[in-house]
Computed example of a mutant assay.
Amino acid sequence: MPFIDLLEAQSQLDALIDAVASGAVPEFVITRGELPIARLVPMELTSTAKRIGVAKGKFIIPDNPDPDESEGLFAA
């Protein structure tokens, strides 16, 4: 895990991002002086295909939510 000073990271940000994104370096720790302040790591890409139906079974929908008021709404 390489440490890199904030000023150096600012000037080499493109190269650091390329190195992390390609997997050449798993992460960089950015420091201010001797103090670690941030980590530069690759994003974990997740599939959004599982979003549909995530609440399935968590809610109960009644057949007629308000029987008193909805009776005459759709009558011809």
Rank of each mutant, 00 (worst) to 15 (best):
F3G: 01
L6H: 09
S22D: 07
D66M: 07
S22Q: 05
A15I: 15
E69H: 13
S70D: 15
S11G: 11
R39V: 11
P67E: 03
D63K: 09
E8Y: 15
L13T: 13
D63R: 08
R51P: 01
F28W: 05
I52P: 01
G33H: 00
A49N: 06
L73H: 08
L6N: 11
D5I: 03
E8L: 15
V41H: 06
F3Y: 02
P42Y: 08
A55L: 04
E44N: 04
F3Q: 03
P67T: 00
D68T: 13
R32E: 03
R51N: 12
F74H: 12
I17K: 01
A24R: 13
P26E: 14
V54D: 03
A15E: 14
D68K: 13
P42G: 08
M1I: 12
P26N: 05
G72W: 14
F74S: 03
T46A: 11
L35A: 09
K50C: 04
S47E: 09
L7I: 12
S47V: 12
S11W: 10
A19C: 10
E71C: 10
L13R: 11
V29S: 00
L40I: 09
L45W: 07
D63P: 14
I17W: 01
A49T: 13
T48H: 05
G33M: 00
F28T: 00
P65W: 14
I37L: 04
V41N: 09
P26R: 04
I61G: 04
E27C: 01
G53A: 06
S47T: 14
D18K: 02
A38T: 00
E8P: 10
D66W: 09
V29K: 00
N64Q: 13
P62K: 11
P67F: 02
A19E: 05
E71P: 04
